[in-house]
Design a protein around this nucleic acid. Structure first.
Length: 826
RNA sequence: GCCAGAGUGGUGGAACGGCAGACACGCCGGCUUUAGGUGCCGGUGCCCUCGGGCGUGCGGGUUCAAGUCCCGCCUCUGGCACCA
């Protein structure tokens, strides 16, 4: 069987999206209407969308985020703001490197070819970007300043090197930051993450933990994202408590959020991979400990994180003394205690902690309840509220106190005895920034045997990447740069002796932590950015991008901005004032993927339906933060609507500049109401409803032409011009064509937002709903300023009401003039 | 396990505590057309004895009035996951 393919062009009543796209693109490129003026002639507004990673051409996700972002940017252009809406590429990173290995070429070849492909697609997509500010993070002119900024952090001890057990991706052969480990897997490639002990570079993000929390109240971000950041930072209030150890001078400090349970601390646990464990293990227990440590190191993060897993551990042979009970307690090592949280050691309180209970039960350690469980409690560890019990010695008694009071009392006592202190602990850890890969900005440090870590002098920046390609980029656990001896070996800038460059590159999230600052003064050569320009534009008014960056880019960028502020480099303390997270584009209920074969190609969609119809489909699909399922949508319907709207422009018979005030009042009112509502809807990101309102206006205008006041009525021109301007935010080609057909010069993008006449927003009659016991019985047309008394009388006199009451008396009448009356019958 | 968010027609989705289902998609009927993947007109929550009755995941509550607020469940999605 063969299928007949009808390739006759569909008659779209003269609407030809291909012709429009071909016609208007060069006109706009010549006019260049979206270049930021930055001359003080209008209020500045910085509109930012997350820049793109150049792996292949644009996909459906780009189509959505760009379409949504452009509604906002174009709206502000229409409103007369001096909008800066820049575009660039986050062009360092692993995919380019992996492609280069496969193709035996330089990562730059793949990277810059994809950038050109994407740039062409973005231009076709008709976005209101200021191309003059374009940047690529892999350009030496850019990463020179990434390196310079790193050195600013280094000089202030905000970048430092330390040895630690770090997250290691065996597939990508590089370390990862905590934020890049998602459910025990590599954020990039999905492989299980293991641990390695390595000396690596860190940014001291923890120094900003509290301010990252405090300043959240300045941000108009989705509550969900703020919450994720709050949880990630993980502030907990508690206390340190010191435990003396037999045969050791220095006591062990533990962090606890439950100092009230100190009397129940029946043993102590340290992280096996913490230094402390090594110090506390006795010769008798050495063999058992070494074996345990080996097993722990071999386990993946996924195994380790599983809460289902039975507790494991080993007795270290050492004993500590509980400071309040004086009991001698065993010290164990177990991997349920984390080396890098708190002090890497805990007091175990099995009576009140589930994990400690499990551990005590398994290894036969003592359990003491120090909080009285509720009546009927028959579980194991009791974590609920209750009065303290078994918590008294000769000097202090907590017995009978509720948890809060017991905490305060015991902390005061500990502080008095110099056995502990009140403290706050954070879950956030420092940002590990070294990567053992090639395609990134080299860390500009020289390691000298006599001088230590020496910064590369500023006049020698950038430290450029040596030319490596193909197999030379193969990951092998150390950076490919390490093999380039002529690049590695340098004279120490301080003493002139033999020294070596740091061979790691920076996490690409460093590049993206300041690109929004570079946009303010592109091409600036005196520094990373021109301070005046940054202070004029920052903070960005609006940021649009995906929520997958909640605790990655969005947290790092906040940290960078605060640190640079403290360095005196800029005024802003937060990078992004308003944040919109768009949802994902999925297909048939699932994320698009090659293996599922459910991918939809953006380019194909644009070929079939045109840019405007696809943009409109994305915007109209639903609230921007919801995921949209392409299978549920109808680009064909969007296209039909655009044709209907477009045909209005060809129908208008009145002349340019006609006095609208003579036009049909009902249509004029609808036009002004629509424009006024559209502003509110855009400000609150309800673009789908905004589009629905434009559809209503189009339908009403069509009706006015066909069966109302007619095509020559000035109100029809007013409405159609408003439609063109409103549509210019979503469907720029169609809008521009309408604008021309209406007799105007390009570009509609700068036509200006229609002025709303407040007098036309006033209704001269309102439909009042009359209910009996909450059920609608009648509708009355009333004046908007009708008095409550008049309205009540009118409602009670209504025939329908009298009939429905059927002789029953009236108990109560609620009047909400002029919209509603509710009568409660007796 | 903990923390968020969400459950509304056949579908995507609208609804300051005040007419549930705007606007679309789809479907049904009609007109135009040689034809339709075009255009136009009408219909479309469910039940009905054509009076009306019932309807926003389930069960309660507050209120003159609840999709919306409160309490308790259920389901789904997302985040975190031994953080002491």
């Amino acid at each position: 069987m063969s299928e007949q393919v009808d390739d006759t062009p569909i008659d779209r009543g003269g609407y030809d999206f291909n012709a429009m796209q071909a016609k208007w693109r060069p006109v706009w490129e010549k006019l260049d209407p979206f270049k930021a003026k930055d001359d003080g002639s209008a209020e500045r507004r910085y509109a930012l969308t997350m820049f793109s990673y150049p792996s292949g051409d644009l996909h459906m996700g780009h189509g959505e985020v760009f379409a949504l972002h452009d509604v906002l940017a174009r709206y502000w252009f229409q409103q007369g703001y001096d909008v800066m809406n820049p575009i660039g590429w986050d062009s360092f990173g692993l995919p380019a490197e992996n492609a280069a290995i496969k193709r035996n070429e330089h990562p730059a070849t793949y990277t810059y070819a994809n950038i050109e492909t994407q740039a062409e697609s973005i231009r076709r997509y008709a976005l209101s970007f200021d191309w003059s500010r374009r940047l690529h993070t892999s350009d030496p002119e850019y990463y020179k300043w990434t390196q310079w900024l790193f050195l600013q952090f280094f000089e202030r001890d905000l970048a430092y090197r330390k040895a630690s057990y770090v997250n290691w991706c065996p597939h990508d052969q590089t370390v990862l930051a905590n934020e890049q480990v998602v459910q025990g897997r590599c954020e990039r490639c999905g492989h299980e993450v293991t641990k390695r002990e390595l000396t690596q570079w860190y940014f001291k993000t923890t120094a900003y933990a509290q301010r990252l929390l405090d300043d959240m109240d300045q941000l108009q971000w989705p509550e969900e994202i703020l919450l994720m950041q709050r949880n990630w930072i993980g502030r907990s209030e508690g206390a340190f408590a010191s435990f003396q150890v037999e045969g050791r001078d220095e006591p062990i400090k533990v962090f606890t959020t439950r100092p009230d349970t100190l009397f129940g601390a029946t043993f102590m646990v340290v992280a096996p991979d913490a230094k402390l464990a090594e110090e506390l293990v006795t010769p008798e227990q050495r063999e058992a400990f070494d074996e345990y440590l080996k097993a722990v190191k071999a386990s993946t993060e996924i195994e380790r994180l599983s809460t289902e897993r039975e507790k494991t551990g080993v007795f270290l042979g050492s004993y500590a003394v509980n400071p309040v009970t004086g009991e001698r307690i065993q010290i164990w090592a177990a991997d349920y205690v984390l080396a890098d949280y708190g002090t890497g050691a805990i007091m175990a309180v099995p009576g009140q902690d589930t994990r400690d209970w499990e551990f005590a039960e398994k290894f036969g350690l003592p359990i003491v309840r120090t909080v009285q469980p509720e009546e009927g409690f028959d579980g194991k560890a009791y974590t609920g509220e209750g009065p303290a019990i078994n918590s008294a010695n000769a000097e202090i008694s907590l017995d009978g106190l509720p948890i809060d009071e017991a905490k305060t009392k015991v902390i005061d006592w500990l502080q008095d005895k110099q056995l502990g202190e009140r403290t706050i602990n954070y879950r956030l850890r420092d940002w590990l920034l070294s990567r053992q890969r090639y395609w990134g900005a080299p860390i500009p440090i020289i390691h000298c045997p006599s001088c230590g870590e020496v910064p590369v002098p500023e006049d020698q920046l950038p430290v450029e990447l040596p030319d490596l390609r193909g197999a030379a980029l193969q990951p092998k656990g150390v950076s490919p740069l390490a093999s380039v001896r002529e690049w590695v070996e340098v004279a120490c800038p301080k003493c002139g002796g033999d020294a070596e460059r740091d061979t790691d590159t920076m996490d690409t999230f460093v590049d993206s932590s300041w690109y929004f600052l570079r946009y303010c003064s592109p091409g600036y050569t005196e520094g990373a950015f021109d301070r005046d320009a940054v202070d004029r534009w920052m903070p960005t008014y609006q940021y649009v991008g995906g929520k997958e960056h909640a605790v990655l880019h969005l947290l790092y960028a906040r940290f960078f901005t605060k640190a640079l502020h403290d360095m005196g480099l800029l005024n802003a303390t937060e990078p992004f004032t308003r944040l919109l997270n768009q949802g994902q584009v999925i297909n048939e209920g699932k994320a698009m993927s090659k293996s599922l074969g459910n991918g939809v190609n953006l380019g194909d969609q644009l070929d079939e339906f045109g840019v405007d119809a696809i943009r409109l489909t994305m915007v109209f699909a639903g609230p921007p933060d919801d995921d949209i399922d392409w299978a549920d949508l109808s680009p064909g319907g969007s296209l039909r609507f655009l044709q209907r709207a477009w045909r209005l422009a060809g129908s208008v018979e009145s002349a340019v500049g006609v006095d609208f005030s003579a036009g049909d009042l009902a249509l004029r009112k609808l036009t002004h109401r629509t424009v006024a509502d559209a502003s509110e809807l855009i400000d609150s990101y309800r673009f789908n409803v905004m589009v629905a309102r434009v559809m209503e206006l189009v339908n009403a205008t069509r009706k006015a032409i066909d069966s109302g006041p007619g095509a020559a009525d000035p109100a029809v021109r007013e409405a159609t011009e408003a439609v063109a301007i409103l549509l210019s935010l979503v469907a720029p080609y169609t809008a521009e064509d309408m604008w021309e057909n209406l007799g105007h010069q390009p570009t509609v993008a700068k036509a200006g937002w229609p002025t709303v006449d407040p007098a036309l927003l006033v209704e001269d009659s309102v439909t009042c709903v009359v209910q009996i016991a909450g059920k609608v019985k009648d509708r009355l047309e009333v004046a908007p300023d009708i008095s409550e008394a008049d309205l009540e009388k009118l409602a009670l006199d209504s025939e329908a009401v009298q009939k429905a009451l059927d002789g029953r008396g009236v108990r109560k009448v609620i009047v909400r003039a002029p919209k509603l009356v509710n009568i409660v019958p007796a």
